[in-house]
């Protein structure tokens, strides 16, 4: 342990954040304002998620951080180290062993359980922001459930691209009431949001916390004649041959060679350990 208060934030601040989280859970999808603190990292690096994690963690927790599904990218490593140092909690890269998972832009492939909490980092919590710049107006629209504008965005997508081209941060309606930005997760992950784990969303710069309680109805918005589709690259993973996971495209050289790999590194690793080998799996192991 160090000279930091447990998980960096002082107890009063954590208490304030917990109140916001509880309110968020009580009103699923509603953006609760909170007094976001200055964190020792820049805005856009997950200050909201870090504050929610800090208020959620207990000394007995096991913590996991992923960034675009990966445990070993800069953002994930720095936040994991931050809590190792300031909270002294155990950390893991295995989804099943973690009790609190902070994520940037992905939901893990492994199904989460009732014992787990998933904390999202959110850049822009307001789904209507790019359509209606006035905060007073968007709040009123949420209050009165005036969500026609959200469909204008989807209409524009279809008229320009022939299909709903929004592929991430795809708007959802939570519990038949609030339209919510699920943070920039790929729309492939949207159907997973009806899960057993608690989902908490923290936006540090925008000072908003919102939440989806376990087993809450989450519906992706769409048109009757253009239904929602959870799309992914049409390939198996080149390392572990998984057909059902969300893939990253990696360019290998300037001759047009590329590979598709699971964006969830823990999922890919556990599959390879179980003996699954993809197209380029042999070379990578060698």
């Amino acid at each position: 342990m160090s000279d930091y208060n447990f998980a960096y934030l002082d107890e009063q601040t954590k208490r304030m954040i917990r109140r916001a989280i509880l309110k968020g859970l009580a009103v699923p999808g509603y953006q609760v304002p909170f007094a976001s603190r200055e964190m020792p990292m820049p805005y856009g690096w997950g200050t909201g998620g870090v504050q929610v994690s800090a208020a959620t963690l207990t000394p007995e927790d096991t913590f996991k951080v992923i960034d675009q599904g990966a445990d070993d990218t800069t953002n994930a490593v720095s936040i994991r180290k931050f809590f190792e140092r300031t909270a002294g909690v155990a950390t893991t890269e295995e989804t099943e062993k973690a009790s609190v998972i902070q994520t940037r832009h992905r939901i893990p492939e492994a199904e989460l359980t009732e014992d787990q909490i998933l904390v999202y980092q959110v850049p822009i919590p307001e789904p209507l922001r790019f359509l209606e710049p006035r905060e007073t107006e968007t709040r009123k629209m949420h209050a009165l459930q005036e969500y026609g504008l959200m469909h204008v965005k989807l209409y524009e997508d279809i008229s320009q691209h022939g299909a709903i081209a929004t592929s991430y941060a795809y708007p959802v309606k939570v519990s038949d009431r609030y339209v919510m930005d699920p943070s920039p997760i790929p729309k492939f992950d949207n159907p997973k949001m009806e899960m057993a784990a608690i989902q908490l969303f923290g936006a540090g710069r925008e000072q908003r916390i919102y939440a989806v309680p376990p087993y809450t109805k989450v519906v992706s918005l769409d048109f009757e004649d253009y239904p929602f589709e959870a799309s992914k690259a049409d390939h198996p993973c080149d390392l572990c041959a998984a057909e059902d996971s969300y893939l990253d495209e990696v360019i290998l050289d300037d001759a047009g060679n590329r590979m598709f790999v699971c964006s969830d590194t823990d999922y890919c690793r556990s599959r390879r350990e179980a003996g699954h080998v993809g197209r380029l799996g042999e070379e990578a192991a060698a």
Partner: peptide, 23 residues
């Protein structure tokens, strides 16, 4: 927002959810 989207906004605001009809 495109001309079509501008006209369609009121339709979508009152609950129209069929792209073909709106267009």
């Amino acid at each position: 927002v495109s001309a079509g989207g501008n006209i369609g906004e009121r339709l979508m605001a009152v609950g129209d959810r069929h792209y073909g009809d709106i267009r």
